[in-house]
Design a protein around this nucleic acid. Structure first.
Lengths: 225, 225
DNA sequence: CGGCTTTTTGATGTATATCAAGAGCCGTGG
DNA sequence: CCACGGCTCTTGATATACATCAAAAAGCCG
């Protein structure tokens, strides 16, 4: 099988719809005493590049950020998504091991640069990345994509705002290309599998960016693989 | 596609051939002042379990160790291999995130338990695991198995003993089942792809556990994907 | 030399990548 | 306000890579 380079997906997309950022998120400030003014960044904006020198922490106030590794052949592997309330810590001791890009318009807060880059942060940041990547390895190590996508849906569900009234229906879906490049599959397969899940009554997809979870045990059973 | 549970592979195999341990490795002591007596462990022996409390470091003197995550459904995902000269550091702050098993008979040296579990070790161990898992994600994120296997061969080549006379032909091949569970594919596909590489003149496989690298640039080109 | 495990090879069905074309969606500008 | 152009997404058709089943071959051990 020849794998397409899919350069089209990599073109910078500076003008995406803002749907996620405004709708599905709310500020989760708290727990940081001195308030550093938050920054607004447009979709597609790079926060830092892989192999850059280490950066300060970045707190996602709203919007979604992706951690992506760009490959020589023009393709990419997405390593993680960061959601409102998440903090992006430096992962390794020396260089950033991934590029961070805003998926949607984001409100972000950079931490003050110095000193905090010490043991506690290290350990925490490394742990975060290890857990994240371990989960991803277990997902994409599975041979078929159906359980991968079921797992992915359950995973993003954890990041829904905890509003009990509309818990199960949120505008949180990421672009299909991002899902595909996260799970190591193709856009079309993501589409078809989502459609399948819908026709099997596992989820409802009223709009392209909206998902409503219907049969969680069913999804979990599929995600087991 | 229904994925077989492949429980057969998981049965403890306490009596594997010792080929690797004695042949392809040599002690790489040095750099550790006080000598702790090394331990001999048979193939298949578990060094520690995933979710155990943190352990001390383990230096691989010879043989090969695998880091494996055992899944509920009975399958497994191998996360990394440790070769002679490698040290297995604790990766995360609290619990082991994988099970460590001897692939072959191994000579190992456990570090003294206390104190050394501090900042330097942490950072180093986490970095090691992150780099390892990042590489694996990039490999198994690829859509086809041919580049995965080419990448795998190049990767194990780095761990050949640096003896210039017989550099390119060594008894280092792991069991096919381990290769398959590392790369997220099946034993049969590993077999066939290796055979393909041989008939294309990329490598030579005189015995099941021996590989001789012939066309490294060719392998690298394939590994790019 | 027989059992055992691992590996190999073959045959088959299926999952999915890829190519291609159409549909929905959105923002812009007339 | 509608029409247009560019985008993402969807759906279809096709080819192919690969998992799976099965059985034979090759090592390995006693």
């Amino acid at each position: 099988m020849e794998v397409a380079t899919s350069l089209a997906r990599l073109a910078p997309r500076e003008k995406q719809p803002l749907d996620l950022a405004e709708e599905a998120t709310r500020s989760t400030d708290g727990h940081l005493g001195k308030v550093v003014p938050p920054t607004l960044v447009p979709p597609g904006r790079v926060l830092f590049w892989q192999d850059d020198q280490q950066q300060r922490e970045i707190e996602v106030i709203n919007g979604v950020v992706r951690a992506v590794r760009l490959l020589e052949n023009g393709s990419r592997q997405i390593l993680a998504f960061y959601w409102p309330g998440d903090t992006i810590y430096p992962a390794t001791a020396q260089l950033q091991c991934y590029t961070a890009e805003a998926v949607t318009a984001c409100r972000l807060r950079w931490s003050p640069p110095p000193s905090r880059v010490c043991s506690t942060t290290w350990s925490s940041g490394a742990d975060q990345v290890i857990q994240e990547m371990l989960a991803l390895v277990l997902a994409i190590g599975k041979k078929c994509t159906v359980p991968r996508i079921a797992w992915f849906l359950l995973r993003i569900r954890k990041h829904l705002p905890r509003d009990p009234r509309r818990l199960e229906s949120q505008r949180v879906m990421l672009p299909r290309a991002d899902i595909a490049d996260y799970l190591g599959t193709s856009i079309e397969t993501v589409c078809r599998t989502l459609h399948d899940f819908q026709s099997k009554g596992l989820v409802d997809l009223p709009t392209r960016k909206t998902i409503r979870f219907i049969d969680l045990p069913g999804l979990e059973r599929i995600a087991e693989g």
